[in-house]
Design a protein around this nucleic acid. Sequence first.
DNA 1: TCAATTCTTGCAGACTCTGCAATCTCATGT
DNA 2: ACATGAGATTGCAGAGTCTGCAAGAATTGA
Lengths: 230, 230
Amino acid sequence: MTSPLAAAPEPERAPEQVPIGDDPAALGLRERKRRATRRSIEFAVLELTRDHGLDQVTVDDISRVADISPRTFFNYFPSKDAALVGDSPFMLDGASAERFAQAKPGGDVLADLFALVRELSLGVTVDLSLHQLRLKVMRDYPELFAIKVVSMRSLETVLTEVVERRLAADARATGAVEPSVGAWHSRALLIALVSLSTMRHAWGRWAESDDPDSLPSKLDESYRELRGLL
Amino acid sequence: MTSPLAAAPEPERAPEQVPIGDDPAALGLRERKRRATRRSIEFAVLELTRDHGLDQVTVDDISRVADISPRTFFNYFPSKDAALVGDSPFMLDGASAERFAQAKPGGDVLADLFALVRELSLGVTVDLSLHQLRLKVMRDYPELFAIKVVSMRSLETVLTEVVERRLAADARATGAVEPSVGAWHSRALLIALVSLSTMRHAWGRWAESDDPDSLPSKLDESYRELRGLL
DNA sequence: TCAATTCTTGCAGACTCTGCAATCTCATGT
DNA sequence: ACATGAGATTGCAGAGTCTGCAAGAATTGA
């Protein structure tokens, strides 16, 4: 990268929509600035990628456009890729996880897990114009998709763990003794992986289509389709 | 990395087992050297990682141990990670794919796809001592796992595409018209993803256990477990 | 043995990312 | 309002990855 990529103006960035009923200045100035900077970096990297191509964009360019020092970039994101793909839209919170793990035995584990995941996706607040831009870029560069998947890998571990606990609780309750301990783990892993596939499927269809259909509804569709498969 | 990590001797590298009935010197000298170099690099990076830790290993170290120049390293692998995780054990070959895509309509697509994947895994010739070492290292550094997954991402595209063709052929044959074209794609993607989950599951269990049980048999187990789930 | 092809290597250079220390900005209590 | 501390930004130096290029070495096939 030698071209300086002039510190361009920023046209199409819609002002961030603040969720209704969300305290506007409840957060201190510090926090507000932080968020603004983060957003600005995310826009910068996406706009540059869209306009100049993925491998033409350097951290220096991004910093120039986002109006921060290159060093500061790395205070916000651990890598260039991280800024490109953003946070995972699925974050497991402890309470729901606990509820799932200790649900009454005998239920359909896959269905319950799915409900859990669906719940997660409800909590997502997307910055619309940022999200649109990100989807556009990801459509242009499918390899980013893989990075996104990696960023969701931690979820695999978490889900497996929670499913395993659920299976153990179930077995303890019904008194049915599974063949071996390893069998639970194997089962839990498979269940987690299948769920992740479904999330991945829903996410993919969400990303592909431009309709603003919410992620949860895509998830429902995917789940139905999964059930139809089997 | 400043420490030179002495160009150590190589103890535990078992000589590569040549599959029976495989011409020993049917390949020219050139090709044989190339393979030896590749193998030597793979061993080097794995041994160094095992002995000194993942982020302590540099390309310079690897090259020193493998006895090549750092520049040559990149003639063999596009990145350090690539050398670490090795090739994907699943490579789709055109002929089997074609057979699958044009199988007689009405069959169980998921089952057929699974058989296809199973077939792929049969073709894998593993260099045993290299494989053992790699599994050990991957167990120590689960993040490598994610990289491995990424390296299999291309398979997702290929599988989806082939499933889509199969679904199209099926529909054409039975005359049943699906609601929309997009529906096929969605369905194909889901099927591919679920299959990949199963492969991933089988692979994970293969990697976790030390038993030399072949990958195909693990695949069978995983498939059975999947069916039991639904 | 000659010539074509394919590999290896060194070198220069762009780029990513980290630790450190100086400096600056926001938050908080008095 | 002001002092003080916690948190952020920045520049700099340095290690490490990876690429293009061109010269030189090895293998192949005739």
